[in-house]
Write a protein that binds this DNA or RNA. Structure first.
Lengths: 251, 251
DNA sequence: CTATCATTGTGACCAAGAGTCATAATTCGC
DNA sequence: GCGAATTATGACTCTTGGTCACAATGATAG
């Protein structure tokens, strides 16, 4: 049965990826070796290289899956019913929930994004990776367009939609990167990084006069609303996950 | 003469670092090999390892120098005579000039900051690296403190000085990271990344009501002023550098 | 059921690069 | 100039990414 064989190979590939991901998260980029994957999965290196042209190929595949998952979550959030700025907040909430729910995925993306890793990845795969980001970017951009159309936002003198998008993106991305070791956060007295990023985004949106301003609308309430409806499932799993992490042993 | 020998060894170490830096920038992290440095400098690998405990040691040393240089430039800029927000703008201008003047340095910092590289660096060196960032962070934080003391700024309801600092930092850092390949900027229609970052920072500062607001004071003029006085030398070299880059061949 | 062909799996093997160390060369203090 | 200390050397090991000729397996035809 040709179909059965096909299925078997698919499962085998998934196994490679799963083990690769575990090694990457457990022992870092250098802890992930093709020989180890082969040994653990009980296949030979040759078989592994039969599917993935090189280590980077495998690792980019892992990253693609993370990005795909995030994209789908953000895309879903963008459909929140509300004014554009509320929907932007929904995207932010989704991004935060994704990061809280799958911090390993954020780390995978962070590891893979580094030049030292990326420089060995062929161009074709790199653009595959970037496509996800472009998609998220355009998601945000069209929301800003809509806000302008809606009369909620007027572009600042020398600003453009893409500028604003870029600034929000940089803020979120830079913040995530700082959380993952770019800055010694605890030494700097930053305890609530996610909150700080969210607040930063609101400052920025207030700064361009995107209505309703945070002084006009209670965005904590909006966030709560989003968490209780659109992201109900994710929010539940986040609180489960984080409560487990905070109390590993029973009293 | 002991001094002469000492001097000779110092020069040798500088040579190692210079060649290492060249290889790193020319051929990426994997293009930089200890054997190549040894071959080019006409020393043996043993001698090289006599000075640097490992490849990462050398590479972190390179990064430290970049950070030190940037820190000194930002520290200088923070002394600009003006109200706190103007001085913050001066820091921003300095950061931009540093990045424009030494884009290679930004790239070195970016390469070194990656987890795949950092994971092989012993903790002691990592904290040495982080100290520079902490310094810049506190530079910014004390400026915000001063703004509050001065009555120019009132902290938003749930915001803290560190939050604001963190947000500005993330925005700048994330933007720089995007410029270095995190985002396909040209495909997204972003042409003036530096401007976009600067504008983003102003939006953010306006958003928290940091006076004088950008509607009250012409910050383009402030920036120009900074470039013509505090950063006169750097600005001149930047324009030289960039005009050379833009017209590589004579007409 | 067997012969043939195509697909998939294997592990010995190679190359490259990080890091080591016994030994050689050099320099310094006297 | 001589012994001690410092510095330089490059052959060597070890790890890891990647290859390839060959073996095993399974599908198909007669």
């Amino acid at each position: 049965m040709a179909n059965g064989k096909q299925r078997e190979i698919e499962l085998r590939d998934e196994l490679f990826l799963r083990v690769g991901r575990e090694l990457l998260l457990e022992d870092g980029y250098h802890g992930l070796t093709m020989a180890r994957i082969a040994a653990i999965t009980q296949f030979s290196k040759g078989t592994l290289y039969n599917r993935f042209t090189c280590k980077e190929d495998l690792v980019v595949e892992l990253a693609c899956r993370c990005r795909e998952q995030r994209l789908s979550m953000l895309g879903h959030a963008a459909n929140f019913a509300g004014r554009p700025r509320e929907r932007m907040v929904a995207i932010g909430e989704a991004a935060e929930h994704f990061a809280r729910l799958y911090p390993e995925n954020i780390r995978v993306l962070h590891i893979i994004g580094a030049e030292a890793v990326l420089e060995k990845v062929p161009e074709a795969q790199r653009s595959k990776l970037k496509a996800y980001d472009e998609h998220v970017f355009s998601l945000m951009a069209s929301l800003i367009d809509e806000a302008i159309l809606h009369g909620d936002l007027e572009l600042p003198p020398r600003g453009t939609v893409r500028d604003i998008c870029f600034a929000l993106w940089s803020l979120v991305d830079g913040g995530a990167s700082a959380m993952l070791g770019g800055l010694p956060l605890s030494a700097l007295g930053i305890t609530d990084s996610f909150g700080a990023i969210a607040r930063g985004c609101h400052y920025l949106m207030d700064g361009i006069g995107w209505k309703p301003l945070s002084t006009e609308l209670n965005y904590s309430q909006v966030g709560k609303n989003i968490r209780e409806t659109l992201l109900a499932d994710e929010a539940k799993r986040v609180s489960e996950r984080e409560s487990v992490q905070n109390s590993p042993a029973k009293p």
